[in-house]
Amino acid sequence: MNATQVRDLTREFLQNVHALPNGEKIDQCLQCGTCSASCPASARMKYSPRIILAALRAGKLNEVFESPTVWFCASCYSCTVRCPAGIPFTEVMYELKRLGIKKGLVGKKTHGRSMAETFVDGVYKRGRSSDAELICRYILRTHLTRAFSFVPLGWKLFRKGRLSLRTRTITGIEGLHRMMNAMGKGDAR
C-alpha cells in the first residue's frame, strides 16, 4: 500500500470513528497505555490498543489492518471503561474489524473474521443462530484439520441433549429480510 492509499484509509477510518458516540475523543489519546494494560488479550496482540493509535498517528494503520490483531478483541470493554480520555476503544476495534473486511485487508481465513461471518450468515438465513450449525460451518470454513479437537466437547453436549441438529427459522423471516434489505448495508454509528 502506497502513502496516498494509507492516507485515504486513515481518513476514512477517522471519519467513521468520529461518527460513533464519543468517537471524536480518539483525537485526545495521550498514549498512557491504560488500554493495553487493561486488555486481557494484549499480550498476544501484535498491535495492542495503545500501539494501534500510535500506528494511526505514524501513518502505519495499514499494518494494523493487515494483521489479525483486532480479531483478538473479545469485547470485554475494560479499555473503554478505564480510558482517561474517554475513548470508546472497543467501538474503535469494531470499526477496525468492519473497515478491514470492507477494504479486503484482513485474511479471509482469519479465525475471528470467519466466526463472525459464519454467525452473520446463519442469523440472516433463519433469524436465529443455531450453535451446532454455527460450529460445523465455522470448522468447514477454517480448520478442517483441527475438527477433531471439537469432537470430545460436542459429544459430551450431544449426550446431554444440549446439541440440537434441528434448526429453526423464525415465522417472520420474510418481514425481517424486507427490513434488512430496506436498511441496506452501512457503516458504524
Binding site: Y94, A116, E117, F119, V120, L176
Partner: peptide, 13 residues
C-alpha cells in the same frame, strides 16, 4: 430474532 451478538456488530453495525 437473534440479537446479533458481538459478531454482527463486527460486520455491520
Amino acid at each position: 430474532n437473534c440479537c446479533g451478538a458481538t459478531p454482527y456488530m463486527a460486520i455491520d453495525s
